[in-house]
């Protein structure tokens, strides 16, 4: 099996199944097969989906730096799938908030989006992510050309908004959002460093020849 076959028929399905596990555990924990959702299951599901959304967002943003550092070009082929899983978990996070937390109570939902800055920025991140997910096909990418790159650069904005959204709702213990912020800073820092190195004429080991570099 060459590397392409292995990625397509072994690694990608494997990553796909692994990425679905957190969602599967929500279901099996709900029925107390694998664990429990605890006294406040709505909050627990909401937190789990939100957390996994952030984790996949960090992973998606880590693809390019990782590819540059390791020199393994094939890593980039997982970026779309990881990004779509970030979208999946954040969309689930939003759906759980809408249906289970707010109970589709529209006045409360409207007021929260307008009045609570952390919800407003969360919504903004979701809108950007949805636009990226809808244009993630090869066909859309071809059709949008340069604008595709511009649109998909908002992955950085989504990362920042996501961590901010988390940070802003914590009561006192900022440790977890701080960890995300440190990881995000490292990922964005790497890109800035890379861009600067390139503009100063230092040839990076691997040129970013596709997508938002």
């Amino acid at each position: 099996m060459n590397i392409n076959t292995r990625i397509r028929y072994v690694l990608k399905p494997l990553v796909f199944v692994l990425a679905l596990l957190p969602a599967a555990f929500v279901v099996t924990d709900l029925f107390e097969i694998t664990g429990r959702l605890g006294a406040n299951p709505v909050e627990e599901i909401l937190d789990r989906f939100g957390n996994w959304g952030l984790r996949f967002m960090m992973l998606a943003l880590a693809v390019t730096p990782l590819r540059r550092v390791t020199g393994l070009a094939w890593i980039a082929r997982f970026r779309r799938m990881i990004g779509l899983f970030a979208f999946f978990y954040i969309a689930m996070h939003f759906a759980v908030w809408l249906v289970l937390d707010q109970g589709l109570y529209l006045p409360g939902i409207g007021e929260d989006i307008a009045k609570r800055p952390f919800i407003t920025i969360g919504m903004l991140a979701l809108v950007l992510l949805t636009a990226m997910a809808l244009t993630s096909t090869a066909g859309m990418r071809r059709r949008l050309g340069k604008r595709w790159n511009q649109l998909h650069t908002s992955a950085y904005a989504v990362g920042i908004l996501g961590v901010w959204h988390y940070w802003w709702q914590v009561k006192a213990d900022i440790l977890e959002p701080l960890i995300y912020a440190v990881i995000l800073s490292a990922l964005l820092g790497h890109r800035l460093w890379h861009r600067r190195a390139r503009s100063q004429g230092v040839t990076p080991r691997l040129r970013a020849n596709q997508g938002a570099g």
């Binding site: 006294a39 299951p41 007021e111 609570r116 709702q169």
Partner: peptide, 22 residues
Amino acid sequence: VDHPRWSQARERRIGSGLFAAK
């Protein structure tokens, strides 16, 4: 009087189940 970051108008009664309204 809302908390600056969330509404205090409604509450979730613990133990009321996954689909119970606040």
